[in-house]
Design a binder for these strands. Structure first.
Lengths: 142, 142
DNA sequence: TAAAATTAGATTGTGTACAATTTAATTCCA
DNA sequence: TGGAATTAAATTGTACACAATCTAATTTTA
């Protein structure tokens, strides 16, 4: 039953790599008082200023069950504001606060530090990005 | 600040892929009454019959804070037994039960079904396995 | 050989993930 | 146009992850 050996599976390396990458973010994000998923939300907000919960969920492939409490924690840390839309009261829009906006400056060097600490070669980075990107695109529902 | 755009990061595709893969296991594992991390434990036990909590943790890169409750759940489902070692009472050895052992038969086809459902090409599979394997090996502390 | 250090697991507490359900608002359409 | 369907978030409940701490057993070593 060679198929069922852990070492022959692709799933496990993917799962282990994902946790390894997150663990490398941890000390850097601790300084910003962010968790890794919270950092992903902030990345999107630094880029777009304002996004609905639904839009964040679509980008990050996370549902409201994950996002609602995460966003409440970001709000309690004064990094974002949750504002229910006047035009459509089902929608909650997420805005950066001044403090959340400023955090971008402190975060500016994180990508470099991760690149360094993970020790990806340029070749590995390119290959992983392109192969994984292709797989994800095929499975994008929309 | 191009560096901080989500779409330029490698971390997010890795994180998203890991969750995508897990989501493809879900319907298959539901039939065996296993979660994905529980399935990883079972894979190792089907291969080795008996492993200590520490050995499982080393293979899966998980600590006792994750494994202890997970193993208690597997035990309550009668798939494994947790037995404290007589020679060294710090050690807890995990054994398959007859039921846990039999489950291997039902699991036999899962790798094929995942290969199918994820739609990896042979090329993608090989590339991901080799590149990710290389990265993980570099970061193995042992 | 007895105190110090190490080791293996368990426990505690926080923060995701995600399925399933609920609530409230909006849109569809007979 | 008004009830049915849809949509956006929130809520509920289960199960990881993982840091930090704790407990008990074993090894080290002064």
């Amino acid at each position: 039953m060679k198929q069922l050996k852990l070492s022959n599976q692709l799933c496990f390396p993917i799962y282990a790599l994902s946790r390894l990458v997150t663990s490398h973010y941890l000390p850097l994000l601790n300084e910003l008082d962010l968790t890794y998923p919270q950092y992903l939300v902030m990345l999107l907000l630094w880029e777009h200023q304002t996004l609905s919960v639904k839009a964040l969920g679509k980008e990050l492939r996370l549902d409201s069950g994950t996002l609602t409490p995460l966003l409440k924690r970001l709000e309690s840390k004064k990094m974002i504001k949750r504002v229910r839309s006047k035009e459509d009261e089902r929608i909650v829009n997420i805005h950066l606060t001044e403090q959340g906006s400023q955090l971008k400056i402190q975060a500016a060097d994180i990508p470099n530090q991760i690149q360094c600490s993970m020790g990806f070669t340029a070749e590995e980075f390119k290959t992983l990005k392109s192969v994984i990107g292709g797989v994800l695109r095929r499975h994008a529902e929309e």
